[in-house]
Design a binder for these strands. Structure first.
Length: 394
RNA sequence: GGGGGGAUACCCAAGUGGCCAACGGGGCCUGGCUGUAAACCAGGUGGCUCAGCCUUCGCAGGUUCAAAUCCUGCUCCCCCCA
């Protein structure tokens, strides 16, 4: 691909590229660029939000550049004593390794293993030492730190900011120095930290990295950014049907954003989809995303499943057979709360009782009205709890 | 080092001796409506052998017929001044 083609393709979805001319001149050298991406080893899943950045990284790889993944094992081991919650336990090396392995495995679905370099920041941060840390921190002022929005806000409202949090951006920035990054990717929430990298590289006599920020994808609640701690995320490893269902629950107004950031559809295909009635547009969205991570077939199948169960209100094509556990049977009658709990359809038997009271438990479509019912009223029937849980009772 | 404030269920937050399994909001769950949603409406949201019982309000003791609320000690957190 020629220079302007590369530039255009790479910057296409980016929220911000600082500065574009530097990216252009780096590309012009023709050498493979080192594209850095930091990885938080505390997370367990790769979300569609994270995938936005990962897919950008993949794009760089496809154009012949080198992906440099940095595991933040050092910082994870320090733990974070700040915040109102009880002190977060420090992660041991083993825990970091376990997380890293899990996450990297998922990365495989997006990032190519060619032109990939994986580093741990303990490699250089461990030996940096107190003196080195002081040296790094010399080049930033408190005023500058307070420029960062979240710090400024928290400071203004009088809530706590730990010194460690101040140091964090410096360490992340130092990573860029250590790996001699040409480009660093991140979400727009990383703005400040990414710029610290530029600054430090200059201090250490390197050519500063280009910062490329990708838009943040809102989660399924449609408001807050997709995050694992908020529980509003869709993981790329999620079963196809669940993934499809969650995507259908994304608010309409976010459809275009999801199309652009989470699918590989062309502008034309996106425009065409959005010209459809909303429910059809959203089906295409869900199908496209599922296809990306589970393959063509799964995309079609999960769409069919969704239509069948939620649109036409029919039973799923496949329902697991379940034998009623002995402890849910008393004197030949079925204790429904025990049954729901045993099947994992209710978190406790109290929860199960509530579901029954509220009409959320059905047998062959008829609401269950008592906690204890005769075994003959149950056997061979389809149990449905809420919208999503089904089982055929034997 | 000094002063002040705080710790309540998933989160925020009310409650200062009995009417407290604990107001209100968010989130979440169920039902209704629908396009699957959003918006909206209704209900629910500690556990259990469930019209009753058991365990919760930072931790440990104590006072009382009775404590989230009072007393003592402890732990942790935040802010301000130096």
């Amino acid at each position: 691909m020629d220079l302007s083609g590369q530039l255009e393709a790479l910057t296409a979805n980016a929220a911000e590229v600082i500065p574009v001319p530097e990216l252009e001149s780096k590309l012009r050298t023709g050498r493979p660029l080192r594209v850095k991406l930091g990885l938080d080893p505390t997370a367990k899943d790769v979300t569609l939000g994270w995938a936005v950045v990962l897919r950008k990284l993949r794009q760089f790889q496809d154009l012949g550049h080198t992906a440099v993944l940095i595991l933040g094992d050092f910082t994870a081991q320090i733990g974070d004593p700040s915040g109102k919650d009880e002190t977060r336990p420090m992660l041991t090396k083993d825990e970091v390794d376990a997380h890293a392995r899990q996450v990297l495995e998922q990365f495989d679905l997006i990032v190519s293993s060619d032109r990939l370099e994986i580093r741990r920041n303990s490699e250089w941060l461990e030996s940096l030492g107190a003196a080195g840390l002081l040296e790094v921190s010399t080049h930033h002022t408190v005023a500058r730190m307070l420029e960062r929005n979240d710090f400024a806000e928290r400071f203004a409202e009088g809530s706590a900011i730990s010194v460690r949090e101040f140091l964090y951006p410096l360490l992340q920035g130092y990573d860029s120095v250590a790996v001699e990054a040409d480009v660093e990717l991140g979400g727009t929430d990383q703005h400040f930290n990414l710029l610290v990298g530029r600054h430090l590289q200059r201090v250490y006599g390197q050519e500063p990295q280009v910062v490329m920020e990708m838009p943040l994808l809102e989660g399924t609640d449609g408001v807050q950014k997709m995050s694992q701690s908020l529980g509003n995320y869709i993981a790329i490893t999620e079963p196809a049907e669940d993934m499809f269902g969650k995507l259908m629950r994304v608010p309409d107004r976010l459809m275009e954003k999801y199309f652009r950031l989470a699918t590989d559809l062309s502008d034309e295909a996106i425009a065409d989809a959005l010209a459809q009635p909303p429910q059809e547009a959203k089906r295409r969205l869900a199908e496209s995303v599922v296809r990306l991570y589970h393959g063509e077939r799964a995309g079609l199948d999960s769409r069919a499943h969704f239509d069948r169960v939620f649109k036409d209100h029919e039973l799923p094509e496949q329902i697991d057979d379940v034998t009623i556990p002995a402890h849910a049977v008393k004197d030949g009658r079925i204790d429904v709360p025990s049954l729901l709990k045993a099947l994992g359809f209710a978190s406790s038997s109290s929860d199960a009782r509530r579901l029954i009271d509220q009409g959320g438990v059905r047998l062959d479509g008829a609401p269950v009205e008592a906690n204890v019912i005769g075994a003959d009223e149950v056997r061979g029937k389809i149990l449905r709890v809420g919208k999503r849980h089904f089982a055929r009772l034997l």
